[in-house]
Amino acid sequence: MSTLEQMYQQVIMDHAREAHGRGLVEVTLPAHGESHQVNTTCGDEVTLRVGLEGDRIASLSWEGQGCSISQASVSALSELLDGESIATADDTVEAFRALMQSKGEHLDEEREDLLGDATAFVGVGKYPARIKCALLGWMAFRDALIQARSASEGGQQ
């Protein structure tokens, strides 16, 4: 496989073509957050919304437009984390960031298990210019999650 094919693995192409969680869903849960992220080099954008029920991600949806890497990445995130616990989500986000910084090397088994399909993005780490694309949705998720948490903490007071 060429490095190009390593980056555009079939899993990624599939996610790009048939994205998960696309289409913003209205969240009535009090603990919710939304984040809009733009990749300033290309104008790609993602708006991502989460709703929490206790410590579980009960709703995760997004809208966006951009390159196959950015769109597939947020799709993979959505498939992985919708319904998960906040703790697992935090670990998964950290693992994905580590994967992006690994310069194309695989991570340990534990973190790759956590990442599931998203492990396929390993090839992106070899292309510094594309790491931002892959991280776009993950940044939106992290930001939306912070907001949802502070909304839920506010609600408990």
């Binding site: 980056m7 555009y8 290309c42 951009g66 390159c67 890497i69 594309r130």
Partner: peptide, 12 residues
Amino acid sequence: VHAHDVGQVLDD
């Protein structure tokens, strides 16, 4: 095909 993806294939 997004411009970034086009550019990547050309780069390769």
